[in-house]
Amino acid sequence: MGCSSSLPASNAGGIGNINNDNSATDSKNLKLKLVLLGDSGVGKSCIVLRFVRGQFDPTSKVTVGASFLSQVLALEDSTTVKFEIWDTAGQERYAALAPLYYRGAGAAIVVYDITSEESLNKAQYWVKELQKHGSQDMIMALVGNKADLHEKRTVSSQDAQEYADRNNMFFVETSAKTADNINQLFEEIAKRLPRPTPPS
């Protein structure tokens, strides 16, 4: 797989934590449903595991999966954003199920692998899907993963950047292996999140 071995974070709350209360979103504590799309093998879950890893508590016995993870990110303006990250199965045969997952999502990360043009084609398919069926104000990010494998690169950054610009997305290349740009990716999404107007 594309990134070094890592464990899911423990702060996602164990499965079965069915009584977990969802405190209401206020202007300082935002909550965001984020969906991950992209071909299988591009390292979707590696990116998320890298992001939540900072909070990993080795003493915790709670086991969680890598397909749903949540992480709170504190921003400089003292707001916090709680990411609830929904992974989707990337294999072709499951593509028709994706709308069930991105319904109601405030943000989407569409991932491809910079060493695979085919995976960029798949990413473009997802972008079109989201534009057609996703919510209008969804924040979309195009992410070229496995940037550490630059000697095998087949997708140029410039092409991807241009595609992203044309489609109103922001673009970043990441390496889940070296953690390059991983936090920046989530910070950027958090910054773009519309802030609820505080009650006057």
């Binding site: 979707k44 879950s45 086991t63 890598a66 992974d87 989707t88 199965a89 294999q91």
Partner: peptide
């Protein structure tokens, strides 16, 4: 989780779960 830990393998998230 057990498989990923015992084989030193990154969990593949929904690609394997679903």
């Amino acid at each position: 989780l057990n498989v990923s830990m015992s084989n030193d393998r990154t969990p593949s998230g929904a690609d394997e779960f679903l």
